[in-house]
Nucleic acid binder design. Structure first.
Lengths: 206, 206, 206, 206
DNA sequence: GATGAATGAGTATTCATTCAT
DNA sequence: TATGAATGAATACTCATTCAT
C-alpha cells in the first residue's frame, strides 16, 4: 500500500519539522527524508510555505477539529466537569504535538502570514471555529441549563482552559520533557477542578 | 551620549528580531541596523546565539524578574485580587513583547538549547525563580492567612494565570493585533475574576 | 564538444591550485574559473576537500599509476639502468606537477587526512601499490635474476630514486624554476648512474 | 626567567603551525597561544608572513646550519660512511620537524616568495650554503683524498642523501607516523650503505 | 509526475590589519 | 610596548526555486 508522493512529502516534512526544527526543515532535507528528488516537492505544493501550511491544515488540525465540533452534542449530558477534563486531555495532547511547530512559525513572518490567511479561508469554507469560542458556546449553553454558575465568564474560562494547556505543553517542550501520561493527567484534572472552584474563600454556609 | 557598541548591537538585534523575525535576524542585518561592521558583533558576542540569549537575559527578563521578586513583600497586604490584577497586567505586557521572540526560538533547536542552558545557569547564579512558582508561593502564603480558599491549588492557579496571559498575547500577535490597552485590561480583570470565582454554581445560602 | 560540468570544475580547480596555491583556491575562485555558479560545485562534490581529493585521484595519479604498474612486465628485459632512467624521468615529470600541490595539503590537516583516507580506500579498491614498493618489487625480481647486486637493498634504492626526484622537483618549484628538459634529464641520468655505482672506491681489479 | 614577548610569539607560532597547520595558524590564534593581545604581534613583526619567515630563520634553521657548517672540519678524519650516517641522522630529525611546515608554505605563494627572498638574503649575509652543496663540497674533498670513488658524482650523492631523507620524513608525517628512533635509524644506515655500494653487480675479482 | 543539475543570493563566521588608548 | 575594539572583505557552504529532460 504505497502512499502517494504528496502524502510522503507531508509526512516527511512533519517529521523533519518536529525533530530538527523549522530552520532546518529545508526543501532539500524534506525531499531527502521523503525519498524523492529536490524538484518533486514543487509538483505538489506551490512553495515551501504551502507545504508547511498543508501540514497544519491536513495533518494536525483535522482530528482536533473533529473532537471539538462534537462538543455541542454533549450539552446537558454527563457532567460539565467530566467534559472539560476530557477536552483538556485532548487539547494537551494536541498542543504537545503542534505547539512547538506553531511557535516556530513566529521565526518567519511570511510563513506566519500564509498560515494566518490559510486558517482564515478555512474558517470560511468549513465554518470552522477556533477552539476557545467553541468551548465558550458550550459553556454558555450549560449556563442556560443552570449547570454553570451564572456569574461565570464562559469566554474567559474557555480561554483559560486552552491557554493554560497550551502554555504548559510549550514549556514542557522547551524543557525537553516528553509527555508523561500520569503527571500530565494530574495536571489536567487539577486545572479543571481549579477552574470549577475558584480561589475565593467561601463563606461558611451558616 | 553615545551608547556602547555592545548595547547598540543588543538594541538593534531586538529591533530586528521583533520586526522581521528570527529567520531574518541575520548577523549582517543586525550589524547594519546597529550601524557597525559585520565583524564587530563577534568582538562582543561569542556567536549569533550568544547575542540572542543576551537579549533575553539582559534586556527582556530583568525588569520582569524584578517585579515578580517583589511579590513576597505583599503578603497579607491589600487584596489578593488586586495583586493578581496588577501582576497579570504586567505579565501580559511582558508576553506581548517577549512571547513571539521566545516562540521563534523553537525554529532553531540549537538556539533554544542555548537559551535553556543560559536560563538554568542564571537561575543558579541569581537564585531566580520562574514566574509561576513565585506566584504559587505567594498564594500559599495568603492561603495560610485565610485569604485564599483552602481547597484552592496555588500551583495550578499560578500556572493558569500566566499561561492564559501568555497564550492570549501570543494569539494576539499571531493575529497581528497590537496591544489595545482597554480590551486587554478588561481581559485581565475578567481572567482574575474568573480564577477567583470558579465555574461551579454556588448553592444558594438560604 | 562540451566537457561535463564536473570535469570543468576539476580542470578549473587544478589550474587554480597550480597557479594560485591552495589557500587561494577558494570554492568561489574555482567556480569562477570553471564558469559556473558558486553553488554548482556542491552538485558534483560533497565539499571543497572532496574536490581536491578528486583532482589527485582522477586527474593526477591515474596516468602515473598506469606507468608504474607496467614495471613488472619489464623484468629481465632490456637493462635495469635503462628502466630506472625511464622511470625516474616519468617520476620527475609527475613530481613537478603534483609535488607542490601535495605539499600544500600540509597547510590544512583536515584536507591531508581526507586525502590520506581516500588513498587508503583506493589502495584497497584498485589494489594500488605506492610507487616505491612497486619499484622495490621489480628490483628484487631483477636481483633474483642476477641483474642487481645481491648486497643491494631494493627497498632503500627505490626510496632513494623517488625521494631524490621528489625533493629535487619540489626544490625547483620552490626556487621558481620551471622544468628545463635538458638539465633535468642530466640530473636523472646522473642520479641513476650514482645509484648503480655507489660512492665506495673500488679496489683495483688486478 | 620571563621570555621576551617576541620569543613567546615565535614559540607560540611554531607550536600552532606544527599542531594545527598553516591555514589554522591565524594571527589571532597565535596571539591567543602566546597569551598576548591581537595587536601585539605587529609590534614585533611586520606582518604574518614576517613571523613565519622568522620561525624558520631564527628557530628551525640555525641549529641545523651549525651542524652542517662543521662538515669541513671532518675532511680526512674518521670514515666517510660514519660522517654520512651522522649527517643523515641529523638531517632526518630536522626534516621531521621542518618538512611539513615548509611543505605547507606551498599553499600560500606569497608566503613562499617571502621565505625564498629571506633565505636568499640570509645566504648573502651569513654566506650560508644550502645543505646539499655543503655536503657535495665535503665529498669532493674526500674524493681528492681518494676516500671517495673517482667516478662518483658528489653533487648527486648529496642531493640523494638529503632528498631521500626529506621525502621519507614528509611521507612519514603524511601517514601520521611519529619518528620511531629505531626504525628511522635503520633506514638511515641502510640508505648510507646503499649510497656507498650501488646497485650494479660487481664482477667477481677472479 | 518525477528528476536532479544549475542558479546566485544568502548564511555565520574568521581574517589580517589598524589605531586610539 | 601592549592593548583589544573596529573593520569589511573573504570564507565554505546552503537555500528555495526553476526547468529541460
Amino acid at each position: 500500500m504505497m502512499a502517494t508522493t504528496r502524502q510522503r512529502l507531508l509526512d516527511a516534512a512533519e517529521r523533519v519539522l518536529r525533530t530538527k526544527g523549522l530552520a532546518a526543515a529545508s526543501t532539500r532535507e524534506i525531499a531527502r527524508e521523503a525519498g524523492c528528488a529536490d524538484g518533486t516537492l514543487y509538483n505538489h505544493f506551490r512553495d515551501r510555505a504551502d507545504l508547511f501550511v498543508a501540514i497544519f491544515l491536513e495533518k494536525l488540525l483535522p482530528d482536533y477539529w473533529e473532537v471539538l465540533s462534537k462538543l455541542s452534542y454533549r450539552i446537558g449530558e454527563g457532567t460539565v466537569q467530566a467534559h472539560l477534563e476530557e477536552l483538556a486531555q485532548i487539547a494537551l495532547a494536541f498542543y504537545y504535538k503542534a505547539a512547538p511547530m506553531r511557535a516556530a512559525l513566529f521565526a518567519e513572518p511570511e510563513l506566519l502570514q500564509r498560515y494566518r490567511e490559510a486558517l482564515k479561508s478555512q474558517a470560511q469554507i468549513r465554518q470552522q471555529e477556533r477552539p476557545a469560542p467553541l468551548l465558550a458556546a458550550y459553556l454558555r449553553a450549560e449556563q442556560r441549563l443552570g449547570r454553570v454558575a451564572v456569574q461565570a465568564n464562559p469566554t474567559i474560562a474557555a480561554e483559560a482552559l486552552f491557554g493554560t494547556c497550551a502554555s504548559y505543553a510549550l514549556r514542557q517542550c522547551f524543557l525537553g520533557e516528553s509527555p508523561t501520561s500520569e503527571a500530565d493527567r494530574q495536571f489536567v484534572l487539577e486545572l479543571v477542578r481549579s477552574l470549577m472552584e475558584g480561589l475565593s474563600p467561601r463563606e461558611p454556609s451558616i
